[in-house]
Simulated scan of single mutants.
Amino acid sequence: MNYHHYYIDRHTGGAVMEKLAADAIVRFLYSPVREKSEKMFRMITSPGYSDFIAKFNYDFPFLGRRQAGQMAKKLGIDLPECLEDPGYFDSARKLFERKIRYCETRPMPENHDSIVSPADSRVITGSLLETEDIFIKDKFFTVGELMGKSIWAERFADGDFAVFRLTPDKYHYNHMPVSGRILDFYEIDGGFHSCNPCAIVSMVTPYSKNRRFVTLIDTDVEAGSGVGIVAMIEVVALMIGDVVQCYSEEGYDSPTPVTSGLYVKKGCPKSLFRPGSSTDILLFEKGRIRFSDDIIANLFRPGVQSRFSIGFRQPLVETDVRVRSEIAVAIK
């Protein structure tokens, strides 16, 4: 059966149907057929195959500037907001790894208590107190599986979470959602499953099986955001072979690896997803933040069909948000 997937445009408040990338292929891979073709499924979600299809899709050069402009227009990419001249974009990789004038085009709220979106993405939020209702713990993922270190997972028991899904057309730099000092940073190996909603609904724990990078930030420090410890988890997907850690405080200049002890500022570039679709997850300690009213209202918007609603038997609708825009505030 062919289900449509809608999200809410935060600017207009309207429901928009998403054209899902490679939807037919993804639906086949994550259908019951995979249970009878386990070797094929494992091969396609392996690092080697993911790297191969990424190079095939993103490194093949365009014939010229005109083709790059046509592709950007088709995907809804605004080339004038980019730092590079339009003539620079002669491949899909360059287009998807673009840098933007984010201070002008993605202004950040002046409110010190704001927590901002780490990416141009589509977000759903929730509380780990309500896992049975939204099928996150033990269905979507468990915090322990997702983080890989129980010492940190325990800090987020009964806390809040936000899942940010990046589609292939999105700006692929991640920015810091909060200010604070890095407590820990580590990588957890895994496969390369799609972040298409069909795959998320069909797999039992897709995010806990994908390769991912975990950053713990202590915001209860001088000049910090004051919302406790925050976990930022960057999840790779099909055609995402790597996440380049490249924190910068001035534009994209002098990129610095993310390491323990590093002080980071809210809104600054943190990392770059290699091309494709991918996901960020934020975890917050219990009682430290409150998500924005419109995001909560959209999550349960009646009459809007989404793959998540179908898979979880209840409304669960994403909101399209821009990087550095407010998605929550600190509870004082």
Rank of each mutant, 00 (worst) to 15 (best):
Y7T: 03
D9E: 06
T12M: 09
M17P: 10
D23G: 08
A24L: 10
R27L: 14
S31R: 01
E35P: 02
K39H: 14
R42L: 10
M43V: 14
P47D: 14
P61T: 05
L63Y: 07
Q67N: 03
M71Q: 02
K73A: 15
L75M: 12
G76W: 00
G76T: 07
D78V: 03
R98W: 08
T105G: 07
E110S: 14
I115W: 03
T142Q: 08
G144D: 10
F161A: 00
F164M: 07
R165E: 07
Y171V: 04
N174Q: 11
H175R: 04
S179M: 08
R181E: 05
R181P: 01
I188L: 13
A199I: 05
M203E: 15
K209H: 13
R212G: 02
T215Y: 00
L216M: 14
S225T: 15
V227L: 03
V230K: 01
I233Q: 00
A237I: 02
V243K: 00
V244N: 09
Y247A: 11
Y247Q: 12
E250P: 01
E250N: 10
Y252D: 04
D253A: 10
D253L: 11
P255D: 04
S260A: 12
G261A: 05
P269R: 06
L272D: 05
L272N: 03
F273E: 01
S278P: 04
K286A: 08
G287T: 00
R288C: 03
D293R: 06
D294M: 03
I295A: 02
A297L: 11
F300R: 11
G303H: 01
S306D: 05
S309Y: 01
I310G: 00
F312Y: 13
R322A: 10
E326F: 00
A328C: 08
V329M: 06
